[in-house]
């Protein structure tokens, strides 16, 4: 029963798996994001305090949740790469880093755009904001280290160490609003018990969350495919694939 899972760890079968999965994941994510944004930005009721400005949560919250999720995923993939020396885990880890960094940057930028009218400042040096900024630099560190060394495997494992050590920052970001007296509001969506958000606003938010996750997964799959092709360029299966795509080589 688990053989398909084990087979997935081999580069050629992962490549084919990703190739088949990616268009569906990406297409579904695109459609859901269109639905979620239209619902959230046009049809959801305005907030009684913030008016229409609250609608930035349909970008901000999914990006923030995914930035933490991708970092955690990257650290887990990094741990797998270090413990079991899995080639595929290295590739997936390095594929996650740029996607996570972009989502972290989107989180910070949308938060700043919202902060100016609501808090009166683009930026405050507050626990959650600072920890999210540190997350951006951790992603950057993994990206830089992932390509710093000529031997790609050594480079990937070095980056994996930074990803694993940096995981201490993830709970700090998530729980900073509970631990410190932060200006950032507490968790309203992803908290235990009854969510502190009305259903009319919550459903489009959940749709956006799912859509962003699917689009991020699509980007990670495609990036992993490209990395696999670059890394395995000399192997038989890549040559066969190229021959199949471009016709026989002269």
């Amino acid at each position: 029963m688990w053989t398909w899972f084990h087979r997935l760890a081999s580069p050629p079968s992962f490549f084919r798996f990703a190739d088949r999965l990616a268009p569906w994941v990406g297409g579904l994510g695109f459609v859901l994001l269109a639905i979620g944004w239209t619902w959230g930005l046009v049809y959801a009721p305005p907030d009684y305090q913030q008016g229409d400005a609250f609608r930035i949560i349909y970008v901000h919250v999914p990006a923030a949740a995914l930035s933490l999720g991708l970092y955690t995923g990257m650290a887990i993939a990094g741990a797998c790469a270090l413990i079991w020396r899995m080639k595929l885990a290295e590739v997936v880890m390095l594929a996650m880093a740029p996607v996570g960094m972009v989502l972290t940057a989107v989180t910070l930028l949308t938060g700043m755009l919202w902060g100016k009218p609501m808090w009166g400042a683009w930026w405050v040096w507050d626990a959650r904001l600072t920890a999210e900024l540190v997350l951006l630099f951790l992603f950057l560190g993994v990206i830089v280290l992932g390509d710093a060394i000529e031997d790609p495997r050594r480079s990937a494992r070095a980056a994996a160490w930074i990803a694993v050590v940096g995981i201490v920052n993830v709970p700090i970001v998530k729980f900073s609003v509970n631990w410190w007296n932060s200006l950032h509001q507490g968790a309203t969506v992803l908290s235990f018990g009854k969510p502190a958000i009305t259903v009319d606003m919550a459903i489009p938010l959940y749709i956006c969350l799912l859509a962003t996750a699917l689009l991020a997964a699509h980007a990670v799959l495609r990036r992993a495919q490209v990395r696999l092709l670059q890394r395995e360029a000399r192997t038989q299966w890549v040559k066969a694939l190229r021959a199949q795509e471009l016709g026989a080589l002269p």
């Binding site: 920890a131 540190v134 280290l145 710093a148 920052n169």
Partner: peptide, 12 residues
Amino acid sequence: VLPLLVLPLMAP
């Protein structure tokens, strides 16, 4: 590269 890796973790 080293400062980029170390300084974010020095924040706390």
